[in-house]
Amino acid sequence: MSSARERVFANLHAAMQRGGFKVPETGTPLPLTLSRQERIDRLKTLMENMHTEVYVVKADDWLNVLKELLRQRSLNGLVYGPGTPLAAALEPSWENDLPPLIPYNEEIEQFKDRLFAIDAGITTTRGGIAETGALILWPDAREPRLLSLVPAVHIALLQADTIYNTFAEAMNSERWQEGMPTNALLISGPSKTADIELVLTFGVHGPKELIVLIVD
């Protein structure tokens, strides 16, 4: 008996023989070209509409803003990925009245119990998308995937210069097609659902809060 693969492809090739495929030119969607400030504003507005807290902060001030935000909340810890520039900024300046800084430095099999018990996580981002309001994340060995998913509060640092007009612009100008990471993510707000009577509620399985610091 032939394999499922062989049978499927035999069927597909037989179908292709029938011909009659008409393929129109693909064309492009209407372009979007915003100024740097417009891109920041649009991303901020759209993400705020989706219940994200967004702060536009100066490069020399973001750490103070972050600490202030953490002091306002009673959190049992802040998990982060060691080895990034973000980590290099956090580690030496951490203060005792802040939630303890916890490095994600083991594999999930060992770290799972702790990770599922920590209130907040912080990550860098690769960029942003103004058109729809979203962050781009490429989690990696230093900043694992679950950092932005398991803790109830996700804090993300976004460099204003990396906000693109559109998703298409981001992937084309960075030539994503030449090498995709294990996991690439777009995140537009805290997790949400409308599965009961279409009533929108935030904080289902992923983070209940998303805080974005746009470093301008």
Partner: peptide, 24 residues
């Protein structure tokens, strides 16, 4: 589908966990 500009998550998966990566 739901009148959203974009969903909360768009998740693009290209491989299993690579050596050195801590989860996935």
């Amino acid at each position: 589908a739901t009148g959203q500009m974009i969903t909360t998550y768009f998740n693009m998966i290209t491989s299993p966990r690579k050596p050195g990566e801590k989860d996935g």
